[in-house]
C-alpha cells in the first residue's frame, strides 16, 4: 500500500495535490502521511515521482485490499479480461463481437466516476437493484470476480469494506427494458454516497441514425453531445 517514509519526508507537501482522492494529508509533526481508509491504491503518488526525496513507496497488498489497486491503478491488467485499466471492451470492439446488436442495449454504470471514488457497498446497491430487473451482467468484466451471487447482484461479504477510484458495472438487456432500468437508476442514485456515470451502448443505423436518443429523451434523460463511436472497421481475421 502507499506509504510515506516519515524519516525521509521533508514536509514539502508537493505530494498532497497529486493524490487522486485527497488521501495524503499533513500530520501535526509537519510530515505527509496517507489516510489508508481513503487511499484507493491508484499509485499515482509513486508514478508521478513528485516526491523530491523518494519517501513514497508501495507495500505489497493482500486480498481483499489489493482490489483497491486492481480497480484504481490503470497500469494493472485484469486476469479475467486481459485489458489494462479497470475496464472492458464495451463499444470498442462491438463491430467484431456484436455483443450489443439490434434489440439490445449495453449499459456501463461507473461508480465513483468522475474522480470521487466509491465503496464496494455502494457498488452492491446498484448491482442488487439491477439484478432485480433480470439484466445480464457482462461476463468479460472484472466485476464478475466480486460476485457471490450475480443473479441477486450480491457481492462477496469480504470485499464490501473496500474502496476503489471507480468500478464499471456493465449490463446487457433487451431494449424494451430501458424505461425500467432508467427508473431504477433514478431511485438508486439517491441511495449511494458517491457519483456515477451512465453510458448506453447501441447500434447506429446504416443512414447514421441513433434511435436510442429519442427514446432516452422521452424518458427525461439528457444525452451529452459527446460520445464514443465505433467506426465499423474491425472484422474477424481468424476462424
Amino acid at each position: 500500500m502507499a506509504r510515506i517514509d516519515q524519516e525521509k519526508c521533508t514536509g514539502c507537501g508537493d505530494c498532497i495535490p497529486v493524490c487522486t482522492v485527497g488521501a495524503i494529508q499533513m500530520s501535526g509533526e509537519g510530515k505527509a502521511h496517507v489516510d489508508l481508509d481513503a487511499c484507493v491504491e491508484c499509485g499515482v503518488c509513486v508514478r508521478s515521482r513528485v516526491c523530491p526525496v523518494n519517501a513514497i513507496y508501495m507495500q505489497k497488498l493482500e486480498y481483499p485490499r489489493i482490489l483497491r489497486r486492481v480497480f484504481s491503478d490503470p497500469t494493472m491488467t485484469h486476469k479475467l479480461t486481459g485489458i489494462p485499466g479497470r475496464g472492458t471492451a464495451e463499444v470498442k470492439t462491438n463491430d467484431v463481437t456484436l455483443r450489443y446488436d439490434w434489440g439490445y442495449y449495453g449499459m456501463c454504470i461507473e461508480l465513483g466516476r468522475p474522480g470521487v471514488g466509491a465503496s464496494l457497498r455502494d457498488v452492491e446497491k446498484v448491482t442488487r437493484a439491477l439484478a432485480e430487473l433480470g439484466v445480464e451482467f457482462v461476463e468479460e468484466n472484472p466485476l464478475m470476480g466480486l460476485f457471490e451471487d450475480p443473479s441477486r447482484g450480491k457481492l462477496k461479504e469480504e470485499v464490501l469494506g473496500e474502496r476503489v477510484l471507480s468500478l464499471i458495472v456493465e449490463v446487457k438487456f433487451p431494449s424494451e427494458l430501458l424505461p425500467k432500468v432508467i427508473e431504477t437508476l433514478k431511485k438508486v442514485e439517491k441511495e449511494v454516497d458517491t457519483v456515477f456515470t451512465v453510458g448506453l451502448i447501441t447500434r447506429i443505423t446504416p443512414e447514421g441514425g441513433i434511435p436510442a436518443i429519442s427514446q432516452l429523451e422521452q424518458l427525461g434523460v439528457a444525452v451529452r453531445p459527446n460520445a464514443k463511436v465505433n467506426m465499423g472497421l474491425g472484422r474477424v481475421l481468424r476462424r
Partner: peptide, 14 residues
Amino acid sequence: KPHSIHLSLGVWGK
C-alpha cells in the same frame, strides 16, 4: 460507416 455508439448520459448521484 459507423457501427455502434456509446452515449454518455452524464453524471448521476451525489
